[in-house]
């Protein structure tokens, strides 16, 4: 009931990301969203000026404690969306709001660089598809977590080590290996260290980008179970990007379907899978093994 009344944890409005300046043809002629009106673009690429329209007018709401799935083929803009939300990349246009920051009133794309860093380190956690992006492979697992803790203002080595052990234990990394560097870990373990790192400052929002891709099935099950448990125990809201509909089906309450930088359909996950409305979503669901 509390959940029903609380405001959205994350609100994204008309988020747009272009690689390139765009030209009058592609900026003016962008379709309204119907396939028939794709304008001059070839998928998300303007053949006239060479601009890639990676994200086009993305809007979404994420409620506290909710898992929102994002599916779509490679190149549809899923990872770009995550990176724009984590400030790895600068969005071209649009706005987003985080409830714990200024009561959700400030567009965090427009706040100072310092405030953005604070948001990134205290309110957000990111897990990348490729652990190399999220971890320093030659630092110890503990140091990787400490890095995030230091970024959020911790200075006491004792407390940081204690917190790091607690986190690594939570994601089932044996503590006797916490001094080793992730380069010596298996892919599944690296992914779990990334999750521990992302959780270190108890963020209300986690961004998970293809976290099970490339893991074998048994390890995948462990990571999924961990994610589910974090949601249940800590009530963290999550955006889960995956091209694997099975993963989305197990984790997400609601799902967005992306194609060529746009959201083509959104709904309850089981509705997306059982009664898809958009032609692309129907194709996608029919491809499910």
């Amino acid at each position: 009931m509390i959940q029903q009344q609380a405001g959205a944890l994350l609100k994204v409005r008309n988020l747009t990301k272009r690689f390139g300046d765009g030209c009058p043809q592609c900026l003016e002629g962008l379709g309204t969203g119907n396939d028939a009106e794709e304008g001059p673009l070839h998928h998300n690429y303007c053949p006239i000026c060479g601009t890639v329209h990676a994200l086009r007018d993305i809007s979404l709401d994420l409620w506290p404690g909710e898992i929102l799935g994002i599916v779509g083929e490679s190149g549809s803009g899923k990872s770009t969306l995550m990176r724009c939300l984590y400030f790895d990349q600068e969005a071209t246009e649009g706005e987003f709001f985080l409830d714990p920051f200024d009561g959700g009133k400030a567009n965090v794309l427009k706040v100072s660089a310092q405030a953005r860093r604070a948001i990134r380190h205290t309110l957000l956690g990111m897990v990348y598809q490729n652990p190399v992006m999220g971890l320093r492979m030659n630092y110890s697992a503990v140091a990787n977590i400490a890095e995030k803790l230091i970024a959020a203002g911790s200075r006491n080595v004792g407390t940081m080590t204690a917190r790091a052990s607690e986190l690594l234990d939570q994601v089932n990394i044996p503590l006797r290996r916490m001094g080793e560097s992730p380069s010596r870990f298996s892919g599944g373990m690296q992914q779990r260290v990334q999750i521990a790192k992302a959780l270190s400052n108890r963020p209300p929002l986690l961004l998970l980008d293809e976290i099970t891709t490339g893991l074998d099935l048994s390890v995948q099950a462990k990571v999924l179970d961990l994610v589910r448990q974090l949601q249940a125990d800590l009530g963290i809201g999550m955006l889960v990007v995956s091209h694997d509909l099975g993963v989305i089906r197990m984790l997400a309450d609601r799902t967005l379907v992306m194609l060529n930088g746009r959201v083509v359909e959104s709904g309850l996950t089981d509705q997306i899978l059982e009664d898809p409305q958009d032609p692309y979503t129907q194709d996608l669901v029919h491809s499910l093994l």
Binding site: L217, S218, A221, K222, L224, D225, R228, A232, R249, M250
Partner: peptide
């Protein structure tokens, strides 16, 4: 059943 693999029956009801 559509559940996370390797979750026991007991755990599913607890969840």
């Amino acid at each position: 059943l559509n559940v996370i693999p390797r979750t026991t029956a007991r755990r599913l009801v607890e969840q």
